[in-house]
Design a protein around this nucleic acid. Structure first.
Length: 440
RNA sequence: UCCGGAUUAGCUCAGCGGUAGAGCGGAUGGCUGUUAACCAUUAGGUCGGGGGUUCGAGCCCCUCAUCCGGAGCCA
C-alpha cells in the first residue's frame, strides 16, 4: 500500500489546545506512554507545554497509520494530526482524536526509565532523561516561576540587576570552603560563594540592587538541604537598616508564594502539594530573637545553651512552632560573619536574621545589616583574625561616602524544595551538583 | 570527616546455610475507552570485587569498592 502524504493542520501546543475544541491541529512532541487494545491505541503524549492523550482508532485512521503508530516505543518522537475533543474519560478532560501519525524518531534501545519505581542513584545517572517525566516537568515549571517572580519583585520596586562575578579573589568569608581555580599567571582564584561584597559596592552606586546567579561551596555537605552548586538571589540596599531589611524579605517571599499559587496551580496539584499551608504565607512573618529561640528550644528539651549555633534539628524545632516562615534575629556575634553590624543596644549580638521555612525546610534566607563605619569594620576583621590588607577595596566603600546598608541572600533551590514539597533538594535544580556527582 | 544502611535479572525488590524468585520493562499473541490498562506465552543471572569459615555460602566472618541516608557547615 502506498503511504499517502501527511495531512496538514496548524501546529498547536498542548497548553493551548483547550482553545481548539473540535478543531483539527498538529501535535509535535514525544510519546511518554501508551496503552493499546487491539484496534484502539491510547498514546500519552507530551510536547514541552503539557501532557495529553491521543486516541488512535483503526477504523478511523486505516491500517497504514495504525501500524506506524503501533511501532512507536516509549520516548519515540512523532507528529500527529488530530481533532481536539472533549472527553470525560481523558486524563485532562480533552484528548486528540488522531487522523494521521508521522514518526520522527524511534529509539533502538529500550527507554531506561520505566513506569515503576526507580532508585535515586539510577534516576540521577539518567537525570538527562528523568527531566522528561511529569513530576520533574512540574518542578522545573515551579522553579521557573519562582525565579520569574523574584525578578519581577525587584524590577517592580526599581531595583537594578547587578551581575556579580563568578571568579573572585580570596575576599569573602572563610577560605576553607572555596573552590580553587588556576587563573593564568595571576595564580589562584576562587569560585564565588557570595556576591554580597560586590553588591555592597554596587549599592553605593545604584542604591537598590540585586543579583541572581550560581554560587559554589566546597563543603562536604551530604544532606537533603545542600548542593555544591546552587543558585542564590541576593539584594543590597543603601540606607536600609535591619528593620527595613526584614520587611523586604517578608515582602519578597510573600510575593513569590502568591505568584506561584496563582500561576502554578496545575503543577502544585500534580505534585500533590498541600497549598493550604502556602496560602498562609503572607507578610508580616513571626519574629523571634536568637535568645528567645534558645529559651524556646530549652523548654522543648533541646540540649542547647546561649552561644551555641542552631543546628538542623533545632531549626525544625523552632519552625514547627509557626505556620508561616519565621524570622530569627540577632545572633551572637561569634557565630556570624565579620561584616555584620553589632546591635547598639547589645554589642554581644549582631543585626542579622535568618528566615526559616515551615515544615522543616530550613533556612531559606540569611541576612544582615552591614558594618558601615571603617574603624568598626577593621576591628571586626581583626577579631575574626582575617587579613585586613586583603580587604582594601571593601574598606574603600567605608572610606568614600559610607552609609548604613543591609542585604540578604535567598537560596533558590531551598525555596523550590519548600514550595514543591520535595524531600530532597537535588530535584529542585535541573542538574544537581552534589558531593561526588557531576554526571550528567 | 564521623555515624548508620545498602549492593541479587535492564529497573524495583523478595530470598529461612541445602537446585536463583516476583513485579515492572523487553519479545510474541489477544482485546475499540485505556488511566502505572489488562490477559496468556517467553527470553533474561559469574547474587559488587577479593579472601575466609563450612560437606555445602546470595545468606556467616574479614577486607576493599561504590551508592544511599543522617550530622557538622551553610542558602
Amino acid at each position: 500500500m502506498i503511504r499517502r502524504g501527511f495531512m496538514k493542520a496548524e501546529w498547536i501546543y498542548i497548553h493551548d489546545m483547550k482553545n481548539y475544541i473540535d478543531k483539527k491541529v498538529e501535535f509535535r512532541g514525544w510519546l511518554a506512554n501508551r496503552r493499546s487494545s487491539g484496534k484502539i491505541q491510547f498514546l500519552q503524549l507530551r510536547d514541552g507545554s503539557g501532557f495529553i492523550q491521543a486516541v488512535v482508532e483503526l477504523s478511523r485512521v486505516g491500517e497504514d497509520v495504525f501500524n506506524s503508530s503501533s511501532a512507536l516505543k516509549m520516548e519515540s518522537s512523532l507528529t500527529l494530526i488530530g481533532t481536539v475533543v472533549k472527553n470525560e474519560r481523558a486524563p485532562n478532560g480533552i484528548e486528540l482524536l488522531a487522523e494521521d501519525v508521522k514518526v520522527v524518531g524511534i529509539p533502538n534501545e529500550d527507554y531506561p526509565i520505566s513506569k515503576k519505581d526507580h532508585g535515586i542513584d539510577f534516576l540521577m545517572d539518567n537525570r538527562h532523561l528523568w527531566l522528561r517525566s511529569k513530576r520533574q516537568f512540574h518542578i522545573l515549571n515551579i522553579r521557573h516561576n519562582i525565579i520569574k517572580a523574584t525578578r519581577d519583585f525587584y524590577n517592580n520596586r526599581d531595583f537594578t540587576l547587578v551581575d556579580t562575578p563568578i571568579f573572585t579573589g580570596s575576599i569573602g568569608e572563610t577560605a576553607g570552603n572555596l573552590f580553587e581555580i588556576d587563573y593564568f599567571d595571576y595564580g589562584k582564584v576562587y569560585l564565588t560563594q557570595t556576591g554580597q561584597l560586590y553588591l555592597e559596592a554596587a549599592a553605593m552606586s545604584l542604591g537598590k540592587v540585586y543579583n541572581l546567579g550560581p554560587t559554589f561551596r566546597a563543603e562536604k555537605s551530604k544532606t537533603r538541604r545542600h548542593l555544591i552548586e546552587f543558585w542564590m538571589n541576593e539584594a543590597e540596599v543603601a540606607y536600609y537598616r535591619h528593620e527595613d531589611n526584614m520587611k523586604l524579605q517578608e515582602d519578597l517571599v510573600s510575593y513569590i508564594v502568591k505568584h506561584v499559587l496563582e500561576n502554578c496551580a496545575e503543577s502544585l496539584s500534580a505534585l500533590e502539594r498541600n497549598t493550604s499551608v502556602l496560602e498562609k504565607v503572607q507578610a508580616p512573618f513571626p519574629r523571634i530573637t536568637y535568645t528567645e529561640a534558645v529559651k524556646l528550644l530549652q523548654k522543648k528539651g533541646f540540649d542547647i545553651k546561649w552561644g551555641d549555633d542552631i543546628g538542623a534539628d533545632e531549626e525544625t524545632g523552632v519552625a514547627k512552632e509557626f505556620d508561616k516562615p519565621v524570622i530569627v534575629e540577632k545572633y551572637p556575634r561569634e557565630l556570624k560573619a565579620f561584616y555584620m553590624q553589632p546591635d547598639p543596644e547589645n554589642p554581644q549580638v549582631v543585626m542579622c536574621d535568618d528566615m526559616l521555612a515551615p515544615e522543616g525546610y530550613g533556612e531559606i534566607i540569611g541576612a544582615s545589616e552591614r558594618i558601615w563605619e571603617k574603624d568598626v569594620l577593621i576591628d571586626s576583621l581583626k577579631s575574626k583574625k582575617l587579613p585586613v590588607e586583603g580587604y582594601q577595596w571593601y574598606l574603600d566603600l567605608r572610606e568614600y561616602g559610607s552609609v548604613p546598608h543591609s542585604g540578604f541572600g535567598m537560596g533558590i533551590e531551598r525555596v523550590v524544595a519548600w514550595l514543591c514539597g520535595l524531600e530532597h533538594i537535588r530535584e529542585a535544580i535541573p542538574f544537581a551538583r552534589t558531593l561526588y556527582r557531576v554526571y550528567p
